[in-house]
Simulated assay, not measured.
Amino acid sequence: MTTNTIQQNVEKALEEIRPFLKSDGGDITLISIEDDKHVKVRLEGACTSCNVNQMTLKAGVETTIKKYAPEIETVVNVE
């Protein structure tokens, strides 16, 4: 897949999960995709102080991104 396609797929995944984050007063922004394998995102709003944000990142965000872009290996939150 092209880098552009991977980015589009990651953006689609974030659009799918964004309503759930917004319902809790948070949001998410794509920061970068490195080597077409590693995604960096920033959890925002209420998500930054939420004590389950690592669980949300792994269970929700990473799973959804991998559904749209299976070649992604890691998803990390940068602050």
Rank of each mutant, 00 (worst) to 15 (best):
Ser49Pro: 01
Ile31Trp: 00
Thr56Cys: 07
Glu62Trp: 05
Ile17Ala: 12
Thr63Gln: 15
Lys37Cys: 08
Gly45Val: 13
Glu44Pro: 03
Glu34His: 11
Leu43Ser: 01
Val76Gly: 05
Asn53Ile: 12
Ile28Trp: 06
Ala69Met: 07
Gly60Tyr: 08
Val41Phe: 05
Pro70Gly: 06
Leu30His: 08
Val76Cys: 03
Ile33Ala: 05
Val41Trp: 06
Ala13Met: 02
Leu14Asp: 04
Val61Asn: 03
Gln7Leu: 14
Gly26Pro: 06
Asn51Lys: 14
Leu43Thr: 02
Asp24Lys: 12
Ile6Gly: 02
Asn9His: 13
Ile17Lys: 11
Thr74Lys: 00
Ile31Met: 04
Asp36Asn: 14
Thr29Ala: 12
Met1Gly: 13
Pro70Ser: 07
Leu30Cys: 09
Asn51Cys: 09
Asn77Gly: 09
Arg18Phe: 14
Lys37His: 12
Met55Ser: 12
Thr48Leu: 01
Val78His: 01
Lys67Trp: 07
Asp35Ser: 11
Leu14Ala: 02
Asp27Cys: 01
Asn4Val: 11
Val52Ile: 13
Leu21Val: 01
Leu30Lys: 11
Gly45Lys: 14
Gln8Phe: 06
Ala13Asn: 02
Lys40Pro: 02
Leu14Cys: 01
Glu34Ser: 13
Gly60Leu: 13
Gly26Phe: 06
Val78Ala: 02
Ala46Val: 08
Ser23Asp: 15
Gln54Asp: 14
Thr74Cys: 03
Lys58Leu: 14
Glu44Tyr: 04
Arg42Val: 12
Gln7Phe: 10
Asn4Gly: 14
Glu71Ala: 12
Leu30Ile: 11
Ala69Asp: 02
Gln54Thr: 15
Phe20His: 10
Asp36Gly: 06
Glu71Arg: 11
Gln54Cys: 08
Val75Cys: 03
Gln8Ser: 11
Ala59Cys: 08
Gly26Leu: 10
Glu71His: 07
Leu14Thr: 00
Leu43Arg: 00
Lys37Ile: 14
Lys12Cys: 06
Arg42Ile: 10
Thr48Arg: 07
Leu57Gly: 13
